[in-house]
Nucleic acid binder design. Sequence first.
DNA 1: ACGGCTATAACC
DNA 2: TGGTTATAG
Length: 743
Amino acid sequence: MPVAKPESSDSRVIAHVDMDCFYVQVEQRKQPQLRGLPTAVVQYNEWKGGALIAVSYEARKFGVKRSMRGEEAKEVCPQVQLVQVPVARGKADLSGYRNAGSEVVSILARRGRCERASIDEVYLDLTDAAEMMLADNPPQGMETIDEEALKSHILGLNNEDGSDVKENVRKWIHRHNADHRDKLLACGILIVAELRMQVLKETEFTCSAGIAHNKMLAKLASGMNKPAQQTVVPFSSVKGLLDTLPIRKMKQLGGKLGISLQMDMGVNTVGGLLQFPEEKLQERYGINTGTWLWNIARGISGEEVEGRLLPKSHGSGKTFPGPRALKTVPAVRVFLNKKCSMILSCHEVNVLISFAIILACRILCKLKSIFWVGNGKFSAAKTGAEIGEMVQHWLNQLCEELSERLCSDLDQNKRIAHTLTLHARAYKSSDSDSQKKFPSKSCPLRYGTAKIQEDAFNLFQAGLREYIGFYGGKTQGSHCSGWGITSLSVSASKIVPIPSGTCSIAKYFQGQSTSHFSSMQSSDNLNTEATLSLPSGVRSGSECYSEVNLSEPKIDFPKEESWIKDTVPDLDLQEQKDLSSTLSEKTQYGFIQEDISPLLLSGCLEQNRSKQQRDLTKDESQFKSEYKERKGKRLKDKGTYSIIELFKSYSPNPSGSFLSHEYNRTVGGTDASSSSYSRDEEEGRREAWGYNIDEIDPSVMEELPTEIQDEIKAWMQPHKRRPNNMVKRSCTISHYFSPSKKS
DNA sequence: ACGGCTATAACC
DNA sequence: TGGTTATAG
């Protein structure tokens, strides 16, 4: 798993910054009266006081630990303040913490390349900043050293008998005879101290940091002195550090690999690895892991700090542990059924009363099952159909959250996700292979909450078909009863920035509209060129996505309302092929530019529309005829419309445009800027995508600055080397049009 | 059959 | 490739 990347004589300055009990700090900022008190953040308060996921340092003094239950925490520390994780849509909502993390990242990114390693951790490459400082204003010549920097811990600095620790640090920083690497680290100390103070000042959060020559050592160091302190690993103290470092403390070695090292190789410290030749380690753990191990034993780790401020994927999930599993036969029902049969078999009881009781039990069960769907309290259900409803209910919640997050990512960072993946865990109580895993499934991601919900549910059904397997129809009815779902999650990945052309055009308009674009621009945009410049025909026509099998028969559940629906509008076979080949083309590397605007429109605008307007989507036959029509027109489409639509979608209000009405009319002949869509306007909006390049008033172009004009011109005649392009694009657009079914 | 919810990366 | 597995906080 870890990949080898040797690099000797590493003179970089790398920092790892780790927020102190981050969730607690976020809650304390919200409720300042909690500051200084033993505090813990807890999620799901129903069962034994909920599970702790973050513990303040004050509370840790009392022995409160992560992964305690709320009640346990109260036992060891009665005065502990328990704050609940916010709940939205029946699940924990971490968005407050994610946003707080972004605040921090935007500050830490100021002095060098910055990699967001998790919600509360970043790596910084401060080499350039340190070299610059060394050249311009070296610490050795500074009169005073910042107080925060003086509080640093420098590994290997001998602080003996009551000597003034800060004074020792000051001397270390000031040393003129230090080697170049130590001097660089001295600069790193000052820079990181300053960054940490800025973080504190601007966000009220404290953090700890490690400063070293590579990521591995910086990470190691950041955890050594917490909270609110920083630790430095000079080159000279690396060996001493690793020689005694328990091997499990090393990142990546906290799991099975670390256990294996201990058990199979008898190695208990990182330094203990030194005795093995590289070949031996490779032989045992594979070429990559082997070299990696050999290197870390020597403190070598060439991993670069990636310039990435934003996450690579978004996900939303929920577990339904044990008793709460989304399962077929709930305990309560079994219990009641037993009672019922006991009563029935008891002769002295009046038959009429028996029936009344049974009826009452049935109603109770029914109520519970419905109630559960309403507020998530009960997991009672009895048939596959009802499990389906529960799954659908939760998937809808998860997809809603995911969609919301995708939309803000699009808004704030101008990025689009291309793959939707569904994960689930399930159990089968009766069957032989009960430990069989529920397969995860993915498909192209279409923007828009309803579409994501629909697709996710289809993915679930595809997974379920595989998971349950097909054992005949009716005879097996009873075998289907013993299964349940213990976790569900949906995630969006393959997130790429909108092409730079679009971005620079967007920036031009940014100047004209008011504050629509938010501050967090990622350095990821740099990747855009690379993405776009990749040769487009590289891959042969092979499929990019394994298709969810679209034409499988429905599963027969015992007595069944078959809740597994057909998954796609029934296009003819050729059309389906077109669609899928489009998908593989589209998602090859990045995407075809023309795909953007349908995404933007059908996605985020739709999100802003009210729910009752959602049923405006076209029905299936309309969709099909429109699809065919577009197939016919494809050669006329040149991609122009997508520019226009893109502009519209950048408008500061939900539906309107920052372009003037005149502009809209000129360009599209449709006024799409009213604040809500009527059915007609919806139609107009759709039709707008069909604009022919010739329909655009040339004067529109002339209003733009020349460099933008050039960009657009280049954009209008793209993909010369790829005559097939138009066909594929056309299909893709139809794909985005595909009607959302009810959900 | 309670440690929940995310996220990343390597492997095949 | 997508899907699985390991890892971490």
